[in-house]
């Protein structure tokens, strides 16, 4: 766990203007390492999702820097940043954002299609990842025919099918019952986490803390405490 995947320093982020201007992140600094599963926890409005967005190249900070594998991502241009996300980051959204008009396999194949892999190769690769998450027999079904847990696993398969170095999971257990949520995170830790990958999870769910390498607590836009693991920086 020695190599930092992400190094963030002094990140500030404001929303709104004038009297409505609020500071969502206040000088946040952290490092995320390869081979670790880093949780960012805290109450609603504490800035967890904003921090995750800044770290993953989705939301530009007002100040501070984010280096991913040594590259300052906020110095990249629009297309370079999109390429960075495509090749380095895998996303598991809170609401999954699966495409209901596509089959499960086609959903999983999307990152490869965006990488210009041929359709047939992308589907073949997607089937392999569906096998990893135990859903190969559901490949031809639309996601709406799957249970919540299955949809979450499809979202995970989609996030890892492009073999990203960093996996971002936003509230991965929010739409799942307790047992399914734990099973999913345990599955991720066993099957998705490896020495060349870093997983960042934003969650409220203390029942899954047991799977974390480190747990950082945010409050009011600041990293306030380490609930588990070593120091954040």
């Amino acid at each position: 766990m020695a190599t930092p995947a992400i190094t963030a320093a002094g990140i500030d982020k404001f929303f709104g203007e004038g009297e409505a201007r609020t500071q969502a992140l206040r000088g946040v600094s952290l490092q995320a390492y390869f081979g670790e599963m880093l949780y960012i926890v805290g109450p609603s409005g504490s800035g967890k999702t904003t921090l995750l967005s800044v770290l993953s190249g989705i939301l530009r900070p007002d100040s501070g820097s984010v280096a991913v594998e040594g590259t300052e991502i906020w110095k990249l241009g629009g297309d370079q940043l999109a390429d960075f996300r495509l090749h380095k980051i895998g996303f598991v959204f809170q609401d999954y954002h699966l495409f209901p008009r596509l089959t499960t396999a086609e959903n999983v194949a999307i990152p490869l299609i965006l990488k210009r892999v041929s359709w047939s190769q992308a589907i073949a690769s997607a089937l392999k990842y569906l096998e990893v998450v135990g859903l190969k027999n559901r490949a031809d079904l639309p996601p709406v025919k799957l249970s919540g847990g299955e949809q979450q696993r499809v979202a995970i398969a989609r996030a890892i099918t492009g073999q990203p170095d960093i996996l971002i999971m936003d509230e991965p257990t929010a739409s799942l019952d307790g047992d399914t949520g734990q099973a999913i995170v345990e599955f991720v830790k066993k099957n998705v986490l490896n020495d060349k990958r870093s997983i960042l999870i934003v969650t409220h769910d203390s029942r899954i803390y047991q799977f974390a390498t480190r747990v950082l607590k945010m409050e009011d836009g600041r990293l306030m405490a380490i609930e588990k693991g070593g120091p954040p920086v």
Binding site: A82, L86, H87, F91, H97, I110, L114
Partner: peptide, 16 residues
């Protein structure tokens, strides 16, 4: 729109 936004987050470029 959300799906297009998800594609954008995943790395789809505006021209795509």
């Amino acid at each position: 729109l959300e799906k297009f936004g998800a594609l954008k987050a995943m790395g789809a470029k505006s021209r795509e």
